[in-house]
Design a protein around this nucleic acid. Structure first.
Length: 271
DNA sequence: CGGGCGGCCTGGAGGC
DNA sequence: TGCCTCCAGGCCGCCC
């Protein structure tokens, strides 16, 4: 489900649980995409949540015992808080009770998500984070960097944008939107991008991701933040899911790249 | 070697 | 109403 903006929206909405103590952990199955750490309950009980961070599409919860929980929501994962009267529903795989009587629920119908527990200091070199690319909303992501990675590759630009080991957290929706905004055809070979196109694309990605965060993320079907609130960025899509171009009203072509839906305006994205 | 595709899952939508 | 197929915001591993 979620790309960088949606995870960031969840993180921000969860900030109030920082400082809470974990009083109990209920695990309703042994695995998601990967096994849930078997000793999760004993390692979490009576620990305080001291920080919540995001890296790429991973959400990181630092604990007072120098361990961190790292979560990935896959395609359909939701992480939300409820008061103590909430009763567990289908696909609620993990329930964490907090000292303020609220409960943190991890619900994931498709089970592409994952959760792991590691020493905080071992996170950066872990299998989850070791190969993750630059954060697109930092200064490390700039025209120089994008020129480097695009010019030494022979792949369509959309594949490069969606490669998490190069640029973290840009998925199918935001790759489509950024390329349309920049008037670049998604199948253009990345090494053929001009200097101007690179500069425009860097700015487009930053703006589109930032605006989506401000709007609470994109709720295509069922995305909600941790308080159950939907985002509104989907109302501002320029091309994703559209039949007509938002700019010139041409009929949008829907094609497939890497098995994913790609939307192209034949008029605005010629090059 | 880098790039592309299948598979992992469930559920909703649409066709018949 | 039901059955079938296709599709979905991601990612890993295998194959070429």
């Amino acid at each position: 489900m979620p790309e960088l903006p949606e995870i960031e929206v969840i993180r921000r909405s969860l900030v109030p649980i920082i400082g809470q103590k974990i009083t109990s952990v209920q695990k309703n199955r042994a695995d998601l995409r990967y096994p849930i750490p078997p000793k999760l309950e004993t390692q979490l009980r009576n620990k305080n949540i001291i920080d919540l961070r995001r890296r790429s599409r991973y959400l990181i919860m630092d604990l007072s015992n120098s361990f961190s929980l790292i979560w990935h929501l896959g395609m359909s994962g939701k992480l939300f808080t409820k008061d103590k009267s909430y009763s567990v529903k289908k696909h609620d795989h993990i329930v964490i009770k907090l000292s303020n009587q609220s409960q943190l629920i991890f619900n994931d119908p498709r089970r592409f998500g994952m959760i792991d527990l590691l020493k905080t200091g071992e996170l950066p070199a872990s299998r989850w984070l070791a190969n993750v690319g630059v954060e697109p909303l930092t200064d490390q992501f700039n025209a120089k960097y994008l020129t480097e990675v695009t010019h030494k590759r022979h792949a369509p630009i959309k594949s490069v944008l969606m490669n998490n080991n190069l640029i973290a957290g840009v998925g199918n929706i935001y790759a489509n939107e950024s390329l349309f905004y920049s008037h670049i055809h998604p199948q253009k070979q990345s090494c053929d991008l001009t200097e101007t196109e690179i500069t425009t694309l860097v700015e487009a990605i930053k703006q589109i991701l930032s605006r989506s965060i401000e709007l609470g993320g994109s709720s295509l079907k069922d995305f909600i933040d941790s308080l159950g609130k939907k985002g509104s960025n989907q109302e501002h899509f320029l091309i994703y899911g559209r039949k007509e171009c938002s700019s010139c009203a041409s009929e949008i072509n829907k094609i497939k790249q890497l098995g994913r839906a790609t939307y192209v305006c034949p008029t605005c994205q010629k090059s």
